[in-house]
Design a protein around this nucleic acid. Structure first.
Lengths: 94, 94
DNA sequence: CTCCTATTTCGAAATCCTTCTAAATAGATG
DNA sequence: CATCTATTTAGAAGGATTTCGAAATAGGAG
């Protein structure tokens, strides 16, 4: 179920907004929530858990904050998957 | 709503199976349906309509068949979107 | 024109997703 | 230890998705 989960995670605009925020910096859950004023902190937490399950982000604890940051390698996997459909001469897809 | 729709379309395993079939050949709706024995023709038609709305495939009619084929350019757009997250030196994302 | 085949549309049921508020947890700090 | 802050979990409501069988459409064939 890995790839479906990843794509589903990216399909949501709210979750893409989180990924955009993390492009610049690693941020705590609270910092992410205050950058997304339209949804509650509980909802942000729910989205973070899905992004984490999809391995698009990783978390690390410091004091009583939880910091989140991007995991670039999953985006590379998606690019590889896409490449098999772009008439590219490299048909190395499994 | 374009990008969300595209990613949502790809997130479904059944729809990815359709994309995989179309990698080799263009196929009619019926040919696609007989390659996917677990779901009904009506369901295949529903998935095809979503893939079409997401511009991942295009259709063309011949006799009373409707043929579907891949549209590679949308996969390229996804790769571009992904590239902004892979520490790549090219930060040209909009 | 009538029938046949390919495909889509309709309506309904089941499941899954997103969001909220309120309550629980976990750790820091006085 | 008592409390405060950061975050998650629980439970519920509302909406969206997936799937089906049956009926509708559309066009070719006789």
């Amino acid at each position: 179920m890995g790839f479906s989960e990843t794509m589903k995670a990216i399909a949501d605009p709210q979750r893409r907004a989180i990924l955009d925020l993390l492009k610049k910096d690693r941020l705590s859950a609270g910092e992410i929530a205050s950058n997304l004023p339209d949804i509650s902190a509980a909802t942000v937490s729910y989205h973070l858990s899905l992004l984490k399950r999809a391995k698009l982000i990783t978390e690390s604890k410091y004091k009583n904050f939880i910091y989140y940051e991007l995991n670039a390698s999953v985006f590379e996997e998606i690019m590889l998957w896409c490449a098999q459909f772009t008439g590219g001469s490299d048909e190395k897809a499994k």
